[in-house]
């Protein structure tokens, strides 16, 4: 097995992980992440599995395609995140269902709260009005 094949196989794994994440996670941000991984996996396969020149140099055509794909992925991510935030605004939850409980679940663990800036909104209450317009 050459390193090329290794990357191609990693690409297959990442693609399927992305698909599972897109379908399997409910939180919209993880779905966006999942779609991104599907793209990265396909790009890896495109680059690593394409035939090589005799000198072992990479084929420029897949390189150009992956470049294009990366730009497309950024565009799609921007739109998807924007829409996800809009869903959060209109339903109170970044989920696709209208019928989820609107109550905010408590933060899971103490360490979680400390390691991330995802603090409960109460200490930021003052800032809320400023972004409301």
């Amino acid at each position: 097995m050459t390193p090329l094949t290794l990357y191609a196989l990693a690409g297959a794994g990442i693609f399927v992980l992305g698909l599972v994440g897109t379908l399997g996670r409910g939180h919209l941000f993880w779905k966006v992440l999942g779609v991104n991984f599907m793209g990265s996996g396909a790009f890896l396969i495109l680059m690593a599995a394409s035939p090589r020149l005799p000198g072992g140099e990479a084929d420029p055509v897949p390189q150009a395609m992956v470049l294009t794909g990366i730009v497309v992925a950024v565009s799609a991510t921007a739109l998807a995140l924007g829409m996800a935030l809009r869903v959060a605004v209109r339903t109170g939850r970044p989920y696709l269902s209208e019928d989820l409980p609107t109550k905010t679940p408590e933060p899971v663990e103490e360490s979680d709260v400390e390691s991330s800036p995802d603090r409960p909104p109460k200490d930021r209450a003052g800032g809320e009005e400023s972004t409301a317009h």
């Binding site: 996670r25 409910g26 939180h27 941000f29 993880w30 935030l85 959060a88 109170g92 939850r93 970044p94 989920y95 989820l100 905010t104 679940p105 933060p107 899971v108 991330s116 800036p117 995802d118 603090r119 409960p120 909104p121 930021r124 800032g127």
Partner: peptide, 10 residues
């Protein structure tokens, strides 16, 4: 999202 406490998955 986090500022509204919506970052946690259910």
């Amino acid at each position: 999202l986090a500022r509204r406490g919506l970052a946690h998955p259910l």
